[in-house]
Structure formats: C-alpha cells, structure tokens
C-alpha cells in the first residue's frame, strides 16, 4: 500500500499550513489556514453566532471554475460539522482555508467536467493537517479514502486517476476519529451490497479494523505493521509536536 507523506507548518506567515503528497494520484497539495481573522470587507461573513468558513481550492495550472466551487462546497459542509466555530473569539470572524493543487498526471489540473473525487481524500487530509497546525478547535478529527470498483467487480483502494476514469463506480468516504461515517460521495452505478463492501474496505483503510459485523465478530485486516490512515495523521502530528518541543526534552 503506497503511503502518503506530509509536512506540517511549512509556511511562515499562515497560522497553520500543511503540504501533502497523495501517493495514488501523485498530486501535491499545499494547504494554509488563517483563523480566526477579521473579514472587514464582507458583511455576509459577519455571522453573530459562529465563525464563517471560507474554503478556496486553487488548481495549479488553470483558472478556478465550477468543479472547484463544487468541491469547496463539499469541504465546507464537512468542516462546518467539525469546527467549533462558536468558541470565544470565533463569532463574527472567519476561518480562511486555501488549498493549492499541483503535480499529478495533468500537472494538478482537473480538466473541466472531470471529477474532483479522486483527489478529494488528499484535499481533506491536507485541510485536517493544516487545521491541526493552526490549532483551530475541532470536535474530532477524520480520515478519508477513495475506493474504485472496476468493471470486474473488484474493489480497489487508493485508485489512481486512470483507475478512477475506468471505474464503474467511484466512492469517497470519510470517517471521524470516533468511527462515524462523515462523508460519502459516490459516482457511477452500484447497489447497496456493493456499497457495504466499499464501506468496509474504506473503514479498514482509514481506521485499521473492520466495523463490527452483523454477527458481532470483529475481523482485523489491517496492514502487517498496523498502519492505517488514522495512525498516519497521528504520527505526523506527533512528530511535529516532538520536533517543536525538542528544546524542552532533555533526551533530544
């Protein structure tokens, strides 16, 4: 299983930032988060009860278009449920998140009419890491993965852009750190049984073990090393904290 790589806080001026390389699609995403900040130019952003979320997805080599707006909507909807925008200091202010997509097969360009779903998990992970780096309060963290179902009915995790194009159905699922399903975006034709299999596969990729099946069994199918996406996020953040606080560790 190819593993993603990420760097926390590579940028100096943004409150929080992360760069993330998606192994399956090869795209490199840079994310930054600023918040809470004033948005004086925008009356609509001054909500008296909670913070305004502003997500911008910027393609590497093209003008942003409808596809970007659509994926921004998905990201905003998901984050609106996780970010604690009612904490002190957040109402009437904004949390501004910017994602720049580069690299990948078309140089970070999702062509007009092409789906953003293959890189959606990468966008979600970049945002999560940038938010953690900016110390924005959240109720929980999440992990996301993409699953493609080929014409032979085979379920394929971590699909490349080419796999996604030839897939019969394509799914992106996100799970919270408590195991809830947070997001399910699907394309193509499939039935509920197939979706259940996709769900189990995605759950295992994200959280390591399969959910409890109907007969109460828990079957473990995690990587031999116990690697899953949640442990990846945890490890990345732990490493960064260890690095940041190395000045007070005697052993370092």
């Amino acid at each position: 299983m190819p593993r993603p790589t990420a760097t926390l806080s590579p940028l100096l001026r943004a409150d929080g930032s992360a760069s993330y390389t998606c192994p399956s699609t090869g795209c490199l995403i840079m994310g930054s988060v600023n918040g809470p900040i004033e948005l004086p130019g925008r009356r609509d952003a001054q909500k008296p009860e909670e913070a305004t979320l502003d997500v911008l997805v910027k393609p590497g080599t093209a003008q942003a278009g409808v596809g970007e707006k659509y994926v921004e909507g998905i990201l905003k909807g998901l984050l609106g449920r996780l970010l604690l925008g009612r904490e002190t200091g957040f109402p009437r202010r904004g949390i501004v998140m910017t994602l720049v997509v580069s690299g990948g097969e078309n140089g970070g360009k999702v062509r007009r009419g092409e789906s953003y779903l293959p890189i959606l998990p990468a966008l979600l992970h970049t945002l999560l890491l940038a938010l953690l780096s900016a110390a924005i309060p959240m109720s929980m963290t999440y992990t996301a993965t993409a699953v493609a179902v080929t014409s032979t009915g085979e379920i394929k995790g971590d699909p490349s852009v080419r796999d996604a194009a030839s897939a019969v159905s394509f799914h992106v699922l996100a799970f919270s750190s408590k195991g809830h399903l947070l997001l399910s975006q699907s394309e193509g034709s499939f039935d509920l049984d197939l979706w259940e299999q996709v769900y189990e596969h995605a759950y295992a990729t994200c959280r390591g073990s399969q959910p409890v099946t109907a007969d109460g069994d828990i079957s473990m199918i995690e990587d031999a090393s116990g690697y899953n996406l949640e442990s990846f996020v945890r490890k990345t953040v732990e490493d960064q904290i260890h690095h940041d606080y190395s000045w007070m560790n005697n052993d370092a």
């Binding site: 001026r13 943004a14 900040i37 911008l56 910027k58 003008q63 501004v96 910017t98 720049v100």
Partner: peptide, 17 residues
C-alpha cells in the same frame, strides 16, 4: 502570466479579491 494572491501568502490578502 496568471498571478492570484491568496490568503496563503499573507493573512492580509483576501481570497477572490
């Protein structure tokens, strides 16, 4: 040449303006 200043470069820059 396309140059669009986003909130990433500096918190003072507003996205889309």
């Amino acid at each position: 040449v396309s140059l669009e200043l986003t909130n990433m470069g500096s918190p003072a820059w507003e996205n889309g303006r």
